[in-house]
Amino acid sequence: MFNKKICIMFSLLFVLTFITACGNGNEEGTSDSTNKEEGANKERTLEHASGEVTIPANPERIIAPYLEDSLVALGVTPAAQWSIGSDVLDYLQPQLEGVPKIAWDMPLEQVLKHKPDLLIFSSPSSLQNGSYEDYSKIAPTYVYKEEVSSNWRDQLKRMGRILGKQDKAEQILADFDKKVKEAKTSLQEAIGDESVAFIWTKGDQFFVFENNRYIAEVVYSEMGVTQPEFIKNLPEAGAQWKPMSIEKLGQLKADHVFLIGSEGEGGFETLKNSSVWQSIPAAEKDQIYVMNKPSHWTIDGVIAHSMSIDKIVETLAE
C-alpha cells in the first residue's frame, strides 16, 4: 500500500511538472506568467511582424519612435525621442524634457549614436531608412504587426508584453475606462444630445475628424456624444487624411466644434473671414472652441486621449 501511494505521488508530480513546462513557451501569446512583471527580469523570445526576437532582460536604452506615449505611460523614458526637424510630441515634453531627438525615419548612424539595447517599430512600413536586418545588427528589434499598430489599446498592451509590464498596462487601461465613464456622465448632464465635431487646421487647410480618427472614436463610440450627420456620412478614416474645403465645412451642422491648431495658423483667419463658416450652428451660438496645443489631439495614445478628454470636459461641462 505504501509503495502504491508513493507511485501515485510521483505520477501527480510528473503531471504537474509537464503542465508547467507546456505553459512556458516563448511565443508572445503564451501563458501570462511568462510575460508578467517578473518576466522583465528575464530574456524572452517573442514573435513579431519580422519573425522572432529575444528581448533582453531589463532593457535600459529603448528607442521606440512615435510609440513614446506607451513608453511614458508605462514609466519608461526612451534613450531618444521621435522628431521631424525641430518638432517632437509636444504633449509629452514634461516627461521627455532633455531626451535627445532622433529623426522619424531612424537613420542608422543616428541609431548607432544612441547605443540602444532595444528598438521597437510601430509597423513594418515604419522601417524607412534601413532593413530589419540592418537595425537588428545594432540591437534586438521588435516590429509591431499592422493590426496591433492600428489600435492604440493593443499598442499599449503589446508594449506591456515587450517590457514585462502587462499588469501595469491593464491597470492603465482600466483607469482610462473609468475616466471615460465619468466624462460620459458629465457630458450627458452638460450638453445632453447636442452634437460635437473636431477640426484640425494646418496652414490654410482643414481636416475633419472622422468618427474613428484619434479622440473622436473615444468621444463618439465610448462616451456616447452625438455625432453630427455630416460626420456620420464621412467614410472611415484612412491613412491619408484629406483636407476639406470651407464650402464643404459649411454643411457641418454641429452644436459644438473644437477647432484645433497651433497659434498663428492661417486657417483661423480664413474661417474668421468666411461667411460660410460663420453661418454654421456652432458659430452662430458662439460654441467654437479654439485649442492651440494640437499635438495630443492628433495622435492615438492613452496619455494623449486622457489629455483630450480633460480639455473636452473642462470646456463643455465645467
Results as ranks from 00 to 15, higher is better:
187 L>F: 08
262 S>P: 00
62 I>Y: 03
98 G>R: 10
316 L>H: 07
172 I>G: 09
67 L>Q: 13
297 W>N: 02
273 N>L: 08
313 V>D: 08
89 L>H: 06
16 L>Y: 06
248 K>W: 00
88 V>H: 05
308 S>G: 10
227 Q>S: 09
2 F>A: 08
259 L>D: 12
257 V>P: 00
85 G>V: 04
74 L>P: 00
54 T>K: 10
237 A>G: 15
130 G>P: 00
253 K>H: 12
91 Y>I: 02
111 V>K: 03
19 I>P: 00
219 V>R: 00
162 I>T: 11
160 G>V: 08
46 L>G: 01
112 L>N: 10
30 T>I: 00
308 S>K: 00
192 G>D: 11
260 I>A: 04
58 N>L: 12
165 K>F: 03
278 Q>S: 14
115 K>G: 01
18 F>H: 02
265 E>A: 11
51 G>Q: 11
56 P>R: 06
230 F>G: 03
151 N>V: 04
78 P>Q: 10
170 E>D: 14
224 G>Q: 09
35 N>G: 09
150 S>C: 01
200 W>L: 14
315 T>R: 07
108 L>Q: 09
8 I>A: 14
276 V>C: 02
295 S>Y: 14
48 H>N: 13
134 D>C: 08
158 R>H: 10
71 L>T: 10
136 S>N: 15
103 A>L: 01
82 W>T: 13
128 Q>R: 13
293 K>P: 00
21 A>G: 05
143 V>W: 10
27 E>K: 02
228 P>L: 07
211 N>T: 06
184 K>T: 12
214 Y>C: 04
50 S>C: 12
286 D>R: 09
142 Y>F: 15
50 S>L: 02
160 G>K: 02
205 Q>W: 01
157 K>P: 01
299 I>V: 15
317 A>F: 07
199 I>L: 04
162 I>N: 08
277 W>K: 02
3 N>D: 09
316 L>N: 09
100 P>F: 08
242 K>C: 00
16 L>G: 01
151 N>E: 13
206 F>E: 11
282 A>K: 01
46 L>E: 06
290 V>M: 06
207 F>L: 08
242 K>T: 10
309 I>G: 11
304 A>P: 07
220 Y>E: 03
43 E>G: 07
18 F>M: 14
99 V>D: 12
236 E>T: 09
275 S>D: 13
20 T>P: 00
158 R>Y: 10
34 T>N: 15
169 A>N: 05
196 V>M: 02
265 E>L: 08
78 P>D: 13
107 P>F: 11
11 S>N: 04
101 K>R: 15
257 V>N: 02
113 K>Y: 05
298 T>S: 03
126 S>A: 15
88 V>Q: 05
107 P>V: 07
27 E>A: 13
